[in-house]
């Protein structure tokens, strides 16, 4: 069982903090997946623990002075309680597995839900566990052999990768005398998409030109809607000869409106005073296009993404926008 020299370090003490981080890191892996063992588990009394310690000291001195043996016995039973509760606090974290952590991407300004998966490989229930991450806390419990997924809210401000801060998994079981804890770094950064502009201008219609059309696999038959039986009056060029031959009857193509033309969303043509504003407008456009089931191409400086209209394309575009330097 390891006991930290100091539980709290001033946030402004840069050098000691770095030294401390290195020291912690030397004690074992800190990124999930990891199994907590004694090298990573720290224990210190809580405030209540210190208070009880003080009380114990008073009881000890009084009983010793009066040579009051039952008083001493009471004191020592409290001491035994304290020592056992330290062991149990440690036990509550020992062999706990932090399996993975991650968060779905969010738009800047939204709170990301950092999900941390933990598992209890032992046969003993673990109650009163807590994840503390960036001043948010979340309590949870693990049944024997059970799993838990703990969500910690992370505030986001800027687009790009957000490295979640060092998190603690901690417990004050069984009676709140000691706090046992372990540090870990969430293994994956959180992708923060740009915040979409509040009132974006309308989509730049008609902006698509040959440059935007890169997909050469557009099928010819795409404009067909279906085949139906030939009716009198159907023009000859709409007869589907091949199919008619297969089905041994005359079939005609049922044509529908061709798809609307593709959109080209270009960073350079996006309105906005600075880069960030432009990116926010582009983000809003990309989202609108996707909502309207329209295909679009995103051009960010030298890179062109698309065209496409599905969710994967949307995600690619958002990611590119988030990470655009």
């Amino acid at each position: 069982m390891a006991t930290a020299d100091s539980a709290r370090l001033g946030a402004d003490q840069r050098a000691p903090r770095r030294w401390f981080d290195r020291w912690i890191a030397r004690r074992g892996p800190m990124r999930p997946p990891l199994t907590l063992r004694y090298r990573q588990i720290f224990i210190l009394p809580t405030r209540f623990g210190w208070l009880l310690g003080l009380l114990m000291f008073a009881m000890l001195m009084g009983s010793l002075n009066f040579n009051n043996n039952l008083g001493l016995l009471t004191t020592f039973i409290v001491a035994g309680l304290a020592s056992n509760s330290m062991l149990i606090a440690y036990r509550n974290l020992d062999r706990l597995q932090i399996q993975r952590s991650g968060a779905a991407p969010v738009f800047a300004g939204q709170t990301a839900q950092l999900l941390i998966s933990l598992a209890n490989p032992g046969g003993r229930a673990r109650a009163g566990l807590e994840i503390a991450c960036a001043e948010r806390r979340q309590t949870f419990a693990l049944p024997p052999g059970g799993f838990a997924e703990v969500a910690v809210a992370l505030t986001t401000h800027h687009r790009g990768w957000l490295q979640p801060p060092r998190c603690r998994v901690q417990t004050r079981q069984p009676i709140g005398l000691f706090q046992a804890w372990s540090w870990f770094w969430p293994e994956r950064p959180v992708l923060v998409w740009p915040q979409p502009a509040d009132h974006p201008p309308a989509l730049p219609e008609g902006g698509a030109d040959q440059d935007g059309r890169q997909d050469q696999r557009q099928p010819d038959g795409d404009e067909f809607f279906s085949l139906r039986g030939w009716r009198e009056g159907d023009p000859l060029h709409r007869v589907a000869w091949k199919a008619s031959q297969r089905h041994n009857t005359l079939l005609a193509r049922d044509l529908r409106q061709p798809r609307s033309r593709q959109l080209l969303l270009d960073l350079e043509q996006a309105p906005g005073r600075d880069l960030e504003e432009k990116i926010r407008v582009l983000t809003a456009w990309v989202l609108t296009a996707h909502r309207q089931h329209r295909a679009w191409t995103l051009r960010l400086g030298p890179d062109t993404i698309g065209p496409g209209s599905d969710e994967a394309h949307l995600h690619n575009c958002l990611k590119a926008l988030a990470l655009f330097p």
Binding site: G221, G229, A243, R246, H247, L251
Partner: peptide, 15 residues
């Protein structure tokens, strides 16, 4: 095949 149409699977109404 890529030139197959829905009707090739489902069937057709023939006048």
């Amino acid at each position: 095949t890529n030139d197959m149409l829905p009707a090739d699977i489902l069937g057709v109404s023939i006048f």
